[in-house]
């Protein structure tokens, strides 16, 4: 009765069992670490990253109609849109558009509120900066969109 536990204790059966599992993962094919700057992760389509303001590809005009819905939907109130009605075209046009990236939590509510697909959260995730300067994006920066840095080997 008490012999088996004793033998298991002497021959360290439980430890050997555990080591068998760990040694099973020793071959290099089992390595799962991503060598980040050289090897980029796959980003899926619905990922919410750096924002971009889309413009009409044919005319180059901004798709934003200054409806202010994104600014109203944002829980952190970090979007400020100012517009003016153009008397010639009778359309509202953007005067200033700022997006404070430092306060954004990428919840995607602004993107959902946008009625014209102007505001889009892109798949770019490399937004780290060394200082707070440049974290408030203006219209030009938003329309340029993310410019991912390339790292040479």
């Amino acid at each position: 009765m008490s012999l088996t536990p004793l033998l298991r204790k002497i021959f360290l059966v439980d430890l050997v069992k555990g080591l068998k599992v760990t040694f099973h993962y020793q071959p290099p094919s089992e390595a799962i670490t991503e060598q980040y700057p050289l090897e980029r992760p796959v980003i899926f389509e619905r990922f919410r990253g750096q924002p971009r303001l889309n413009s009409n590809p044919d005319t180059g005009e901004s798709l934003c109609i200054v409806c202010n819905l994104c600014a109203l939907a944002c829980p952190e109130q970090l979007i400020v849109v100012k517009g003016e009605r153009n008397p010639a075209t009778k359309r509202k046009e953007v005067v200033s558009w700022t997006y404070d990236l430092s306060r954004c939590m990428f919840c995607g509510l602004c993107e959902e509120a946008c009625s014209t697909d102007a505001l889009e959260l892109t798949q770019d995730y490399e937004m780290a900066l060394y200082s707070r300067e440049g974290m408030v994006l203006d219209q030009a920066a938003l329309e340029r969109g993310p410019e991912p840095e390339k790292y040479a080997k």
């Binding site: 899926f44 389509e45 619905r46 990922f47 919410r48 939590m105 990428f106 919840c107 995607g108 959260l121």
Partner: peptide
């Protein structure tokens, strides 16, 4: 999670 809703941790 990321494929479904676009975020890994704070999913919303």
């Amino acid at each position: 999670f990321e494929k479904y809703c676009g975020a890994r941790l704070t999913t919303h």
